[in-house]
Amino acid sequence: MREASSYPLIRTDQLTKCYRAGRAEVHALRGVTLTIERGEYVALMGPSGSGKSTLMHLIGCLDSPTSGTCEINGQDIARLNDVELARLRNREIGFVFQTFNLLPRLSALANVQLPMIYAGTRPRERTRRARELLTLVGLEDRMTHKSNELSGGEMQRVAVARALANQPALLLADEPTGNLDTRTGQEMMALFDHLAEQGNTIIVVTHDAGVAGHARRIIRLRDGMVEAE
């Protein structure tokens, strides 16, 4: 898969996803075709129910499509098994969640190391890299704090550092400012802008136009389809 760089980072073709909610069948995605290249800074916008979360889950290899294809680096995720998907999530994708999802009793340093533990990185290298990343997100003096001793903005910075741990091809952020106040949210977006300038591929899922405004490309979803670019 090393020549995979000749493929676009993400390519979906007539991607659909439906699932059952009780007796009703919900068509979350109704044929999404899009391509995202390396180095892009994309905002995925849409009202709730538009399918943007479902699309994010598929791109993040957390779910499998009903029909159509979703390729990451040219690999069709429908054809991958549990171990291969886990590996893809671990190495190629860095998640940033609205609710941070840090392990509360662990230090910031330990939280950032988590993906590297699953990647099998040596402890010494893990610690070195985690320090480097926490410094990058401006938390050099908070490294040994437990995550439940941190403020919301600090927690989200730890989450960003964690997402970058294995140098993923893609940073996937789901409403990253949703639980932050306006000022902290702006700081967070500034951090994303900075990371995008450094060449990271970033997809921000949001319904906040202000947040989406930071991206260089905006994809609007409505009723499970791409409404506008």
Partner: peptide, 16 residues
């Protein structure tokens, strides 16, 4: 449950 979901998102396999 959330922790397990998170660990999987971060690259834990079912086996791990």
């Amino acid at each position: 449950t959330r922790e397990i979901g998170l660990r999987k998102a971060l690259g834990a396999t079912s086996r791990t």
